[in-house]
């Protein structure tokens, strides 16, 4: 399978060039945030407070790693279910977030916001935490340390494998691929 190498933060031209089903290898900086961190980020936005990290143009990975054993950068580090973040996502996209990595499909509201704000959603391989950890070269907690496994982290990744699930043109890999293999009338 062809893999396209891309840099994160991902620029607008690259986002426009990617369509649902394209396999990519991401290198560069991505930020980690999941349920509790999303709640706090959106609270801050609604109160008009500054965010602990500037998300404009950035990539967020929905993930909560296991602790780093001695001598390692991080523990297992696979994606968590994205749909739990759906309620917060349009607000973050409106504030400039450009890319998301997680697993599973998104709500109609998120898909619409992805089109509107010209953003992109990638799926990574759920349950491949040990494999994906190999692509993470540096990991630092940068905010909400009290949240434990849910703290916001900054990662430096090299050739992190992901697949475009929702693109700016309305393409949806989950819908397309599942209908391709569905057998009706059994």
């Amino acid at each position: 399978m062809k893999n396209i190498r891309i840099k994160s933060p991902i620029d607008a031209a690259t986002i426009a060039s990617l369509t649902a089903g394209t396999q990519v290898l991401i290198s560069g900086v991505i930020y980690v945030a999941r349920d509790a961190a999303h709640q706090r980020l959106v609270w801050s936005l609604e109160k008009g407070e500054p965010l602990p990290v500037n998300i404009k143009g950035q990539t967020i990975y929905y993930m909560g790693p296991s602790p780093a054993p001695p001598g390692r950068v991080i523990g297992a580090a696979g994606p968590t279910t994205s749909s739990r973040m759906d309620i917060y996502t349009p607000r973050l996209l409106a504030d400039g977030l450009k890319a998301m990595i997680g697993k599973g499909n998104r709500s109609p509201e998120v898909k619409a916001a992805i089109k509107e704000y010209k953003a992109i959603y990638f799926t990574a391989i759920g349950g491949a935490g040990a494999l994906l950890a190999k692509t993470i070269k540096k990991a630092d907690i940068i905010a909400y340390e009290d949240l434990g496994a849910e703290a916001i982290m900054r990662l430096e990744v090299e050739d992190f494998p992901a697949i475009v699930a929702n693109d700016i043109y309305g393409g949806d890999l989950f819908e397309q691929a599942q209908s391709q293999y569905r057998i009706d009338g059994d």
Partner: peptide, 14 residues
């Protein structure tokens, strides 16, 4: 992933 987890004692899943 399962091979890496077993050999390196990294959890199969985070």
């Amino acid at each position: 992933n399962a091979r890496i987890a077993r050999e390196e004692h990294i959890p199969l899943c985070q």
